[in-house]
Nucleic acid binder design. Structure first.
Lengths: 138, 138
DNA sequence: CTTCGAGATGCAACCCTGTTGTATTTGAGG
DNA sequence: CCTCAAATACAACAGGGTTGCATCTCGAAG
């Protein structure tokens, strides 16, 4: 699906910033930090990127996860069916900061105390990714 | 176990700051943010609290989890046997920021791509805690 | 008990992520 | 083409966390 189509389908105004950010996220296909997007799209203001991502998330076009480094990462929801957020675990390389969605796996059921209203769950598996391990072994 | 004993057993120097922080954490019994500890111990410098927590974690006396608000929380490992980190899910109230350990439950096994070296896992369940729900309903 | 050095502390400054306020621009419907 | 709500840019700010460095203190050795 085209970036413009995605935006229109979600009822969002089809602005330059949103098209650029969406296209970038689709091209990457993995969760990106706002900083990473700003780097890839220097013509956009930092605040615009933050607000654009918030719009996309609010419209259900993207989901967000936090890394261990205190930065949130946003990822385009590729399948209209996938029940993000709350959907799948995420993988984070603590060396290069890259994150990946572990599609195809769900999140476990967790027993919570009486009276606690669960809004969502986040499972982040962290470690060293294959390419970083190879680079570090040199 | 006494705070001083904990420190000695872990091979850490038994300084005033470490004793105070450890006692505070034992008294609370739930994961605390550095900011929360600073508030409770205004005689300590902010940086000292951060470094003290890092020491405790490095010595295996405490484990840390991140909240959804970008702040890490530290919790004393009470049982010498518990295999923290990587031990249990955590519960976070997104309204008041309080966090609790969900002891007695483990973390799920997650399938990761070939070559990824897992260092740890974090499962955070967020929502509204019972007391906040009660306060909000007023 | 005194000495002494590695390690811990306090302070100041800094970086990064993210948010807020406001003036200006822009997109989409009429 | 016009209009106006929504989106953008810019600046300033807030919070969490880190780093560098001078000073202090624990605890071991004598």
């Amino acid at each position: 699906m085209d970036a413009r189509q995605r935006l229109s389908a979600a009822g969002l105004r089809r602005t330059a910033a949103r098209v650029l950010v969406t296209e970038r996220m689709v091209a990457e296909g993995r969760p990106l930090t706002p900083a990473g997007i700003c780097e890839a799209l220097p013509e956009l203001d930092r605040v615009t990127v933050y607000r654009t991502l918030a719009s996309l998330e609010g419209a259900g076009l993207a989901h967000k996860v936090q890394g261990l480094d205190g930065a949130w990462r946003y990822c385009i929801d590729d399948s209209e069916i996938s029940g993000c957020p709350g959907g799948h675990p995420h993988l984070l390389c603590t060396r290069c900061g890259a994150m990946a969605c572990l599609l195809g796996q769900g999140l476990p059921w967790v027993a919570v105390p009486e009276g606690f209203a669960v809004q969502g769950k986040q499972l982040v598996v962290h470690g060293i990714c294959a390419s970083c391990a190879a680079a570090g072994a040199r």
